[in-house]
Structure formats: structure tokens, C-alpha cells
Simulated scan of single mutants.
Amino acid sequence: MIAFRSQDRPGGLYLPDVTTDPDLRRRGVSAALLRAVQEASSEFGCRRLYLTSEPENIAAHRTWTRLGTLTSRAIAS
């Protein structure tokens, strides 16, 4: 898992993708990793965590929702 902090908006941490090995899915691995990233990001003063996923990735969206994230849609130009 790779996350980066914005230079323009240092209060935000960006997590472009979370990928879990297919054999380890539905075991809470992604949720545990995201919680760890959330804790670490707050130590750096980040107040927002930005996650991205493909619109059709329903499993990812369910995980994010269970963790209390808000959903925002981006439209590619």
C-alpha cells in the first residue's frame, strides 16, 4: 500500500489503490490496512484521506462505507 501527502494540500493523504491478494480477500485485510493508514496519517497532521477506486469495484466501495468514508464521484474529462 502506497499513500502520499499532497504538497499543495498537506492536510490530505491520497491512497490511489488498495489491492488485496485474492486468497486473502473478505478477511478484513484491507480494512485493517486502511485503519493503520488513517492512524499514521493523523500523526502527520492529515485530516482527510482520499481513496480512489473504479466505479464498478463494489467490494471496495462496501469496505470504504463500512469504515465511515463519504463517497464522491469524479468525472473524467
Rank of each mutant, 00 (worst) to 15 (best):
M1C: 02
M1Y: 07
I2P: 15
I2D: 14
F4V: 02
F4Q: 07
R5C: 04
R5L: 00
R5T: 12
S6V: 05
S6N: 08
Q7W: 10
Q7L: 15
Q7F: 14
Q7S: 13
D8F: 00
D8M: 04
R9G: 13
R9P: 12
R9E: 12
P10F: 08
G11F: 10
G11P: 14
G12T: 13
G12H: 12
L13D: 04
L13Q: 12
Y14G: 07
L15C: 12
D17N: 09
V18Q: 11
T19L: 03
T20N: 01
T20M: 02
T20K: 02
D21R: 13
D21P: 00
D21I: 04
P22A: 12
P22I: 01
P22H: 04
P22N: 09
P22E: 09
D23F: 13
L24W: 00
R27V: 03
G28F: 04
V29H: 03
V29T: 10
S30D: 06
A32I: 09
L34I: 12
L34C: 02
L34Q: 06
L34A: 02
L34V: 07
L34H: 07
R35M: 06
R35W: 07
A36I: 01
A36D: 07
A36H: 13
E39S: 11
E39F: 15
S41C: 09
S42A: 15
F44N: 11
F44C: 15
F44D: 15
G45V: 09
G45P: 00
G45I: 06
C46M: 13
C46V: 04
R47W: 11
R48I: 13
R48P: 08
L49Y: 01
Y50N: 14
L51M: 09
T52D: 11
T52P: 10
T52M: 10
T52Q: 12
S53A: 03
E54N: 06
E54K: 04
P55D: 07
P55M: 00
N57M: 02
N57Q: 05
I58D: 03
A59F: 00
A60F: 00
A60L: 03
A60V: 02
H61N: 01
H61M: 03
R62T: 07
R62P: 02
T63D: 07
T63N: 11
W64V: 05
W64G: 02
T65L: 15
L67R: 07
G68D: 03
L70D: 12
T71P: 06
T71N: 10
S72E: 14
R73M: 08
A74E: 09
A74T: 01
I75D: 05
A76P: 09
S77A: 15
S77K: 01
